[in-house]
């Protein structure tokens, strides 16, 4: 840009603008630079996203899932459930935060049924209990814990429930 523009020259419209004068100063260079930068970035990004890298949210998700499968191989989550004391110990805290309001501190039941007796509505085998906790019983008010706790912690809390049996 030729720099012959004079600064602080008024346009002479003041009598038509309730006395407000206006200078006709040039656009600040850095401002113009910023504008051009965003325009060029916009074009570059669009071309890159859609036509060069062919990106999309679906692909982003697929890539994240693939990475997760490598980092946490399916085997761990899918392994058969064997309740142990270690799991039960970890499960106690999970039970205290999530289950006490309905099943009670001592598991003897409140809104939800007693979990220490021999009466099981949905089956008393370890896998049954894991399944009930994972899927919940929506119609009766037992939440679906699978997506909230994740398979690992469902197993821990199930182990805790089993360890409390008969108490």
């Amino acid at each position: 840009m030729g720099k012959s523009i004079q600064r602080d020259q008024v346009t002479g419209h003041a009598d038509e603008a309730d006395g407000i004068e206006e200078y006709d100063n040039p656009l600040p260079d850095w401002w113009l630079g910023l504008f051009w930068f965003t325009i060029i970035f916009a074009i570059g990004y669009t071309l890159h996203y859609h036509f060069i890298a062919h990106r999309s949210p679906q692909k982003e998700l697929a890539a994240e899932l693939a990475a997760a499968r490598v980092q946490w191989p399916e085997g761990v989550a899918g392994a058969a459930f064997v309740p142990t004391h270690e799991l039960a110990e970890k499960g106690e805290a999970i039970f205290k935060t999530n289950c006490v309001p309905c099943h009670g501190e001592d598991l003897h039941g409140k809104i939800g049924p007693n979990l220490t007796d021999d009466v099981w509505i949905h089956g008393g085998r370890p896998d049954d209990i894991v399944r009930t906790i994972t899927n919940g019983v929506q119609a009766k008010g037992m939440p679906t814990w699978g997506p909230i706790l994740g398979p690992e912690r469902v197993k821990e809390v199930a182990a805790y429930v089993i360890s409390e049996h008969g108490k």
């Binding site: 346009t11 200078y23 100063n25 656009l27």
Partner: peptide, 20 residues
């Protein structure tokens, strides 16, 4: 654009910038 130059009693910095 109306009240700031009136309160400041100063001319608007740039007519050109306002158009762009």
């Amino acid at each position: 654009y109306y009240f700031l130059p009136r309160a400041a009693e100063r001319p608007v910095y740039s007519y050109r910038l306002s158009i762009v």
